[in-house]
Design a protein around this nucleic acid. Structure first.
Lengths: 225, 225
DNA sequence: AACTTTAACGTACAAATAACGTTATCTTGC
DNA sequence: GCAAGATAACGTTATTTGTACGTTAAAGTT
């Protein structure tokens, strides 16, 4: 039983919503291959016994200074020709980031680090466009049957903030009144005794999401609009 | 940028439905590690530039003689300790098999090859129980929003056959009349001018599924019962 | 106090779901 | 040939959910 050795990388597709736009975190490459192209943060598996998710976490931290994020495996790409250096398999991960408190910092082997709107991406290195397309689709499904959207929001948020996340991801507007009704009736929102003073009009009530309360619900709510 | 080399395997979780029972195809291992344990058909990535799916197809053929099947990537496991030989990453695949025309044949390095009911599995090698649990869950979701169930049926089948596939996978009975209504109204079934003479009572009409017709539907049907 | 803007609540019809009942068609056995 | 038994196939109703709207409330601004 011959066991060929393989080079394995991890790549992380990190999303955040800012001002109603769904954005992807990209790194500008300083070295070949794909020098000066933008790509996903990621890199090779290192030490013996480093798990895939640990490698994704490490690379994301090294290349962007982002830590403590939600990570979920997307898909593993191993097609011939996806990397000019030969067969390199990559395990891709999805990360969902809260905008608040991020302090981006590029690593030494990057010439840039920036958020890009998911619908206005530059030409990308490797098959990273494919990974983004795949992960974007996954995210669209995910917010419909899981509370993933809350991972993109600060701890306290208004119903409007929540709706903007859904609209940014779905790429369309949803009916404001039906949106409220469904979320308020689902039992996943905890009403706070605070209001937000964002605009200069009527302040909106703040809510928070409780993972524990969510788990206790008799059956899983669905958030389709 | 040091690039550690990694051993990579593929493992395939093959399902079939027989007599109303959802079964998993397992191989009894002749060699260490986990000698004489049952496990999923699979093995190491070989030649340079063999894709993951190609390797899964090859291993499934070599170890079970099964070919021409639907394959879909499940998840890639790379935890420390999942293989006693050290860090070995495995990409797992889901296969859906039609019972008809299968000619199982074990390879030389197996001491057994058999179908096992998904709910009565023996102790399994590596983390294969985890892969099965994961893939079983995926299959449950999959038949609700895709025509995956048809991949487990012969080309011509009765509504009863179809319902038995759903019940075997969901692990519960569903209302016969609502089941018929939803499928007949969904537009995915093509009625044939033939009947099935299975039992010794009233013959049932045969249907077939057309992938092309399915694609043409205005919106995707959902098969939740 | 009137105006503007966002927040929050409410209503009506259509569609889908879920839980049932009934009729039809075949084989078997008398 | 006909009743019995079993599966196939069609139908009905109440309830829930979805969808498309209209209305009122509360803040700041002028």
């Amino acid at each position: 039983m011959p066991s060929e050795l393989v080079r394995v990388t991890v790549d992380t597709l990190a999303f955040a919503v800012q001002q109603g736009s769904l954005e992807v975190l990209l790194v500008k490459r300083k070295n070949e291959p794909f020098k000066s192209f933008w790509g996903l943060p990621g890199g090779f598996l290192l030490e013996e016994d480093e798990s895939l998710e640990a490698a994704a976490t490490r690379e994301l931290y090294d290349e962007t200074n982002v830590s403590n994020v939600y990570l979920e495996q997307l898909y593993t790409f191993g097609d011939k020709g996806r990397d000019p250096r030969g067969r390199i398999i990559t395990a891709s991960y999805l990360a969902l980031l809260r905008q608040e408190g991020l302090e981006l910092r590029a690593s030494a082997d990057a010439s840039g680090l920036a958020w890009w709107p998911v619908n206005e991406l530059p030409p990308l290195a490797f098959d990273h466009q494919r990974i983004i397309t795949y992960g974007y689709q996954r995210l669209k499904y995910k917010i419909e049957y899981s509370p993933a959207a809350f991972k993109l929001l600060p701890e306290k948020f208004t119903l409007r903030d929540l709706q903007m996340v859904y609209e940014a991801i779905l790429g369309r507007t949803v009916d404001n009144r039906n949106f409220r009704k469904k979320f308020l009736g689902s039992g996943v929102l905890q009403e706070l005794n605070e209001t937000s003073q964002e605009g200069s009009y009527r302040p909106a009530r703040l809510y928070c999401f409780s993972e524990q309360d969510f788990e206790k619900l008799p059956d899983r709510p669905v958030f389709v609009f």
